[in-house]
Simulated scan of single mutants.
Amino acid sequence: MVLTPALLFHTMSTVHVEQLNFKPVAMYFVAALLLFAGVLVWQGLNRRAAVLALSCTFSNTVMIGIPLVSLAYGQTGLVTLFTLISVHALVLLTLATVVLEMVAAREERGQGQGSQWHMALTVLAAIKSGIIHPVPLPIILGLLFAQTGLVLPEVVGKPLQLLGSAFGPVALVLVGVTLTQVQVGPYLKSALGISLLKNLVLPMLVAALGLALGMPTRSLSVMIVAASLPMGANVFLFAQRYEVAQEVVTASMAVSTLLGLATITLVMSLVGLL
Results as ranks from 00 to 15, higher is better:
residue 165 S to P: 07
residue 101 E to L: 10
residue 208 A to Y: 15
residue 29 F to Y: 10
residue 97 T to L: 09
residue 188 L to F: 14
residue 92 L to W: 12
residue 8 L to A: 06
residue 62 V to A: 03
residue 247 E to I: 04
residue 214 G to D: 07
residue 209 L to D: 04
residue 215 M to Y: 01
residue 34 L to K: 07
residue 156 V to C: 11
residue 17 V to F: 09
residue 9 F to M: 13
residue 246 Q to G: 05
residue 137 L to G: 04
residue 64 I to A: 07
residue 56 C to Y: 02
residue 60 N to W: 01
residue 158 K to R: 12
residue 232 G to I: 02
residue 155 V to E: 07
residue 215 M to F: 01
residue 171 A to F: 14
residue 67 P to G: 13
residue 65 G to F: 04
residue 63 M to K: 06
residue 50 A to N: 06
residue 152 L to K: 08
residue 102 M to R: 14
residue 233 A to N: 04
residue 115 S to H: 15
residue 3 L to W: 03
residue 244 V to R: 05
residue 158 K to Q: 12
residue 59 S to L: 06
residue 101 E to W: 10
residue 22 F to L: 07
residue 161 Q to F: 11
residue 136 P to M: 09
residue 9 F to Y: 09
residue 207 A to I: 02
residue 19 Q to T: 12
residue 156 V to D: 10
residue 169 P to F: 09
residue 206 V to W: 00
residue 168 G to S: 12
residue 169 P to K: 07
residue 198 K to N: 03
residue 135 V to E: 04
residue 187 Y to R: 13
residue 176 G to Y: 12
residue 57 T to G: 11
residue 24 P to F: 00
residue 186 P to H: 11
residue 91 V to W: 01
residue 216 P to W: 03
residue 138 P to N: 09
residue 210 G to Y: 02
residue 189 K to E: 11
residue 214 G to N: 06
residue 6 A to Q: 03
residue 70 S to M: 05
residue 15 V to D: 00
residue 97 T to W: 10
residue 241 R to C: 15
residue 103 V to A: 14
residue 126 A to V: 11
residue 265 T to R: 13
residue 144 L to C: 13
residue 154 E to W: 14
residue 93 L to W: 06
residue 203 P to L: 05
residue 222 V to T: 06
residue 241 R to S: 14
residue 101 E to Y: 12
residue 175 V to Q: 07
residue 76 T to Q: 08
residue 116 Q to L: 13
residue 227 A to K: 01
residue 223 M to C: 01
residue 120 A to V: 15
residue 128 K to H: 13
residue 193 G to I: 05
residue 195 S to D: 02
residue 87 V to C: 12
residue 141 L to D: 03
residue 268 M to Q: 05
residue 218 R to A: 08
residue 263 T to E: 06
residue 98 V to K: 08
residue 150 L to T: 12
residue 28 Y to A: 01
residue 196 L to C: 05
residue 1 M to A: 15
residue 84 L to Q: 00
residue 1 M to S: 14
residue 219 S to I: 02
residue 68 L to D: 03
residue 81 L to Y: 02
residue 269 S to M: 10
residue 86 S to F: 00
residue 86 S to V: 01
residue 64 I to S: 04
residue 34 L to I: 11
residue 69 V to D: 03
residue 262 A to Q: 13
residue 62 V to W: 00
residue 102 M to Q: 12
residue 17 V to W: 09
residue 152 L to M: 10
residue 18 E to L: 07
residue 11 T to K: 03
residue 96 A to L: 13
residue 192 L to T: 06
residue 270 L to A: 13
residue 116 Q to M: 11
residue 152 L to P: 02
residue 225 V to G: 01
residue 127 I to S: 06
residue 183 Q to T: 14
residue 66 I to E: 02
residue 2 V to Q: 15
residue 245 A to H: 01
residue 94 T to N: 08
residue 261 L to M: 15
residue 164 G to L: 01
residue 44 G to C: 13
residue 229 L to V: 01
residue 229 L to R: 00
residue 60 N to H: 06
residue 265 T to I: 13
residue 58 F to Q: 10
residue 13 S to D: 02
residue 89 A to N: 05
residue 267 V to R: 03
residue 140 I to N: 02
residue 92 L to V: 12
residue 132 I to R: 13
residue 201 V to L: 07
residue 156 V to E: 10
residue 26 A to N: 09
residue 83 T to R: 00
residue 218 R to E: 08
residue 111 Q to P: 07
residue 199 N to A: 04
residue 43 Q to T: 11
residue 15 V to E: 09
residue 41 V to T: 14
